[in-house]
Design a protein around this nucleic acid. Structure first.
Lengths: 217, 217, 217, 217
DNA sequence: CATGAATGAGCCTTCATTCAT
DNA sequence: AATGAATGAAGGCTCATTCAT
């Protein structure tokens, strides 16, 4: 028998659900998921320990909900942002800019997301894969459009390209997090896009440039 | 009073130290650091629980030793690999290839490294920073040589470039880990280098290519 | 950061705090502090192991609380008893009688007190000193009054006298404890006072009686 | 089957037995019996942990041996000292003086003796009783001689008198130990004897002096 | 005789979860 | 709905003791 919350917990207007979720993210951001306790979360949220179990199945479930509601919502915004632009270059720029913007705006979410994402955590493996796929598909879509527009190279290993972009963006975010969030993350977007597009080499300078053979995708 | 291992643990000929360390990495890789128990590690190593404390101060110390001995050694190899090549392009290729090779060769190490590296773990914060700096400095060195050789663009935001490269490589590794290590990771090296050098754009196709202003770090 | 009990532990109406404290004293009395386990105390108190940590910081804290609440209360009674009498002789008699009475009434407390008091236990060193000083000061006060009243010798080494009295009383208690508490301890009070006052010698029989030189503290 | 030391351990000329015993006493004095570890004792003695088990059955046995060899020897000296004197007063003085002298000379022994003596420790209950009886019998013998000599009161509660004396002496020692052994303990002997003999009262000043009725022994 | 690495039982302590109020 | 006291399973760590060398 599957567990049902005792309370219509996820109703949009239910403050306490979100109150606890936000408190949890804050605490997870500070100590890491396994180092955080239900008591800490309860104290941060200003509720009793037991109250948390009215809205969440258990501690693990808080993390799952984080992905299912909080993160999903953030990533959904990426789609909108991409749709705003026509040009593949602008789409990519919008995507990266929005990514950096959202993560800069919610540092706690960013910390938890980045940490859990690399933990190969059984609890949220599925959710992470979905989130990741959503992003990667977006990139592939953009690059394919870029190829169709004649703006992007056709000899690209797409499944590599998408990770190359996601990895670089996430690493830039990670560095910003480690720095304590002292500088403006969004300003990294344009230089980053430039690297994605042009790379670091001077065109024609590398003899082997032409030699690389890739199986597209 | 500083703790000393009860046993001259790090002597070359002492297998038990390495036996336990390897067992621990395997267990950490499977369950994550905080989900792993000393008993699991002991069982995996084929020793008694108490034996672990003859070689390690406590559970945390195992993770610290992982960075101080295991990982440090892997990263030291990167330096050698870079020094083997003259050309900046070859240096970069050697670095990335070796990186992928080492992580493919020791999947457990790779899993633990990737996970802990994003956890903002207090225990090994210092070690992670050192390891990371070692890598990033290597990249900067290569790119600067590339610029001197006239092979790489001079208008590069170096502190961004180094993370762009590290991030992309690590994400490729991460994806490989998530896939269960089913394909050949090293074969990713050349396509990846190609992306670093040339990017995904067709030279001249993007109007704004020239417009980007960067402070060359 | 200072520890606060999770529960308003010392509230008058909170039985569980006292329940556990009494259980602990009983167990300590039977096995000694270091030989007693939290599980034993919990079982004796009829609570779960974890419950103890809602009221006490840790095992050591139980011993500290024993001194801060249980013993302090007993010793506070000594002051009242002394104040009841006018005559220095009666004051001394009341003090010793009450001392023996309280320790006879709570054999477990007596056992723990006597044991810990001689252990030079770091945990409660301060508390023991305070408790001891309280008692010794009381004796000094009485003897000084006795001297003023012309009932007690003026050539007394006060700091020795106070220990002479405390030591004799405690040894009598100790013997009673070792015997298993089979006889009436309070009946020892009068003969003991007699020894304090008159000693064991026949007045004038010892030639050297007059020869002893003391620095009246 | 009873345990026998693997080695003729108690041979007078065996240094290691005494080496370990002295080391143990030193360690017990510093940390208390239960807080001391075999490793600490081994280190203090300059031998391996395992070596201790060649001379002692187990940790408990070290404490038992402490009483059986070390303490017994000290207390045996008391008998000699008493026999040296003829007069009961001198006998008492010699006894107390020697007691203080021996305990001052070996502070570690004193610490361990005082601590264990009040612990109601199962391990050495028998030994402590013996040691104690030896001392108390000596006092009784002296007092009875004093009574025969017409130097001591006949209306004495002997079994109380002996504890009264032992208790006072031990408390004086205890105070000296707590002070860190800063002053001369032996100088306490004469003032103490004076208190035993004459008490603190002025002869005849207390009306009730005569009123006390005691059952001798 | 001596060593000291290895063992594993046992203990303190934490904390997710429950449930009576 | 909310509380928070109570629970007890689980885990990190210590250390007396053993035994192969």
């Amino acid at each position: 028998m599957e567990w049902r919350p005792a309370i219509s917990a996820k109703d949009k207007n239910n403050n306490k659900y979100h109150l606890i979720l936000e408190a949890a993210i804050k605490v997870f951001a500070g100590h890491g998921f396994y180092q955080s306790t239900i008591s800490q979360i309860a104290r941060e949220a200003g509720v009793a320990d037991g109250t948390i179990y009215l809205y969440f199945k258990n501690k693990d479930d808080i993390l799952v909900q984080f992905f299912n509601y909080k993160t999903r919502q953030v990533f959904a915004g990426f789609r909108e942002e991409v749709d705003k632009a026509d040009n593949s270059g602008e789409k990519l720029r919008n995507l990266v800019r929005r990514h950096l913007k959202e993560f800069q705006a919610d540092r706690d979410m960013a910390l938890v997301y980045q940490a859990v994402t690399r933990q190969h955590n059984r609890l949220v493996k599925k959710e992470i894969k979905e989130m990741s796929k959503l992003y990667l598909d977006l990139v592939v879509e953009i690059v394919e459009q870029g190829q169709a527009e004649g703006l992007m190279r056709k000899d690209l290993y797409l499944s590599l390209v998408k990770r190359y972009i996601l990895g670089a963006v996430e690493e830039v975010i990670n560095t910003w997090l480690l720095s304590g969030g002292k500088y403006d993350l969004i300003s990294m977007a344009d230089p980053l896009i430039d690297l994605f597009i042009r790379g670091i080499g001077i065109p024609g300078a590398f003899q082997q440039d032409e030699a690389i053979q890739v199986n597209s995708q």
